[in-house]
Design a protein around this nucleic acid. Structure first.
Lengths: 152, 152
DNA sequence: TCACTATTTTGACCTATTCAAAAAAGTGCG
DNA sequence: CGCACTTTTTTGAATAGGTCAAAATAGTGA
């Protein structure tokens, strides 16, 4: 049984041409274990390992690894930027309108035909991003009337 | 030739059960003429008509009309919230990665089959939002090497 | 026109994020 | 291994976008 996701942060960084530093390793590791985490959550995680790390360092690292293509930044409306290592596979996200929880959704139809708009208004199209909105299982349960609570 | 879009803001407000105020009329009018405008841009427009209007009033109005279903708020990654009156027709947007320009894209396939994910991870699905990313015609032109400029 | 409630103003405050300068640390090379 | 060079990190301030709250004002139905 594995509790931690295993990746090789140092190798990832080297391949991307980035220097291998403690902060970067810590952020990558934290991100591997917490997909869709925001800068703040990652800062907390990183501090558990490297207590002297600054918030700014986390932002730096996130920008660096995002630019380098190691991470992807998503930003559902109403939420701060979130990050994930799962990159380049064109998957999408489903976001809970109530609590903000996010789950991955694999692209159903590959190069989905309906994702090429027929009018591109003169734009050179490069990407289609799909965000599903709904209510997660937890929030659904929480919203139910408490039918089982009967006063004595 | 029509330079201004004509809507009936007062009627819209009344139907929505909102009080008809100058600020609201001004914001709705500004929005009708500037789809995909942000709070700040609208504030500037509104001030041209009602110079005493506060920025906060614009935020209030935008929240009110959005809650009332008169406007929709979109928030492409990396941009502030933008608003549009075109509501309830499930259209999507194409955003220029270079300058942030936004155009409407009608939903190509109606209830697009590929927009129902096969795994919903326990979520109650209510909406699918599609954002296309690309480069607009202007930015495409601007990015071209200036082949025609030849020094004498 | 009144009374009641909703809206607006004013000004403080907050979160997420970036900027900038100095200090510290990674890396290739001798 | 140790230096020089460059990148990264720290520190602290600053910014954008937006919310909160209380008092003043303005719509609205009767």
């Amino acid at each position: 049984m594995q509790t931690a996701v295993t990746i090789d942060p140092a190798a990832m960084l080297r391949e991307a041409g980035l220097r291998v530093t403690d902060s970067r390793i810590a952020v990558l590791t934290a991100l591997a274990n917490n997909p869709h985490a925001g800068a703040d959550a990652l800062f907390v995680r990183v501090q558990q390992v490297l207590p002297n790390t600054s918030r700014q360092a986390v932002y730096n690292v996130l920008n660096d690894i995002t630019d380098a293509g190691l991470a992807r930044r998503i930003e559902p409306a109403g939420q701060p930027g979130l990050f994930e290592l799962r990159v380049g596979d064109n998957h999408h996200h489903i976001v809970c309108k109530t609590c903000g929880a996010i789950a991955d959704v694999d692209c159903v139809t590959g190069h989905a035909p309906c994702l090429t708009p027929n009018e591109t208004q003169g734009f050179d199209l490069s990407e289609a991003e799909v965000t599903f909105w709904g209510v997660c299982a937890n929030c659904k349960t929480a919203a139910l009337p408490n039918t089982s609570i009967v006063p004595a």
